[in-house]
């Protein structure tokens, strides 16, 4: 075997080194999400199919078929944003990703970039998928996002971030991808049913209406519906601030609970 001397230059840590390193890890995490065909399919093709199927099946309950498609475009977009939490769990704990992450723990990067980068990357991945979904579905079904489409897509960003932060936080609590995914899926699906994602609960009595009003999915749906159909931005700021606060809370929780030992 030929003797090779390893003579890489010793690099002194600078203030920018940490930022550059975080950027490198973040890019890799985004790539990993996009390389996963299940994640990409779930967040794009499946969502389009669900909108088309539900819009067609339940169209008779709406005044117009196009109203049904518009309704399900927004509710499934919100549902997709909330399910970004499972993308984060997958990115964080999936075996093929988890092992290389061990090297990040051993590198000077330390622990924080591992969980925070997964949160940020999952939110970005979900955001790109769901904005892409709207770009395809809206022209296809002839619907618009109202007078402020940019405000609509801007409001999606903090919701994606809050959802991804929740997924990462659950991983730090339960330390198991399967348990985390099962719990997150159950919680999001329950909230979505109550929020009227799959079918409207209006007119199903006071108790159901009360439960529906308590679901955060309903609040999000209301904010996006009012923005798209009524040009009403009154709920934009509360949703924006609420989502940012939730994201900050869960990121802080992840910082407290994430233990490198769990990766060893």
């Amino acid at each position: 075997m030929e003797t090779i001397a390893i003579q890489a230059r010793c690099v002194t840590e600078t203030r920018w080194a940490g930022i550059r390193r975080f950027g490198t890890i973040f890019r890799m995490d985004i790539e990993n999400d996009f390389r996963n065909p299940v994640l990409v399919g779930y967040n794009t093709v499946l969502a389009v199919l669900l909108i088309l199927i539900m819009g067609s099946l339940v169209g008779g309950l709406f005044a117009d078929q196009s109203d049904a498609f518009a309704y399900y475009t927004i509710t499934f977009c919100v549902f997709g944003m909330l399910m970004t939490c499972t993308t984060a769990a997958n990115s964080f704990m999936e075996r093929d990703i988890r092992r290389p992450n061990l090297r990040i723990i051993h590198s000077p990067a330390g622990a924080f970039p591992i969980h925070f980068s997964k949160t940020l990357a999952s939110a970005t991945f979900g955001y790109i998928c769901h904005v892409g979904l709207l770009l395809v579905v809206c022209p296809l079904l002839g619907m618009s996002l109202g007078e402020s489409p940019l405000l609509f897509v801007a409001l999606m960003a903090p919701v994606e971030l809050a959802s991804a932060a929740l997924g990462t936080f659950f991983c730090c609590v339960f330390r198991c991808e399967e348990t985390t995914n099962m719990l997150l899926s159950t919680v999001v699906e329950l909230m979505s049913v109550l929020g009227g994602t799959f079918f409207s609960l209006d007119g199903m009595g006071d108790i159901i209406a009360g439960l529906s009003a308590a679901s955060p999915v309903r609040w999000l749906d209301d904010a996006f519906f009012r923005l798209a159909f009524d040009g009403d931005a009154a709920l934009v700021m509360p949703v924006f601030l609420g989502a940012v606060a939730v994201a900050a809370l869960f990121v802080a929780g992840s910082c407290l609970l994430f233990k490198t030992e769990d990766y060893l």
Binding site: I6, A8, V11, T12, R21, S107
Partner: peptide, 20 residues
Amino acid sequence: FFTSLYGLHGDDLEEAVDRA
């Protein structure tokens, strides 16, 4: 990727990767 976590980039990184 893994070597860049140690602060190497550009030509230094490429040389280190080739040697490894």
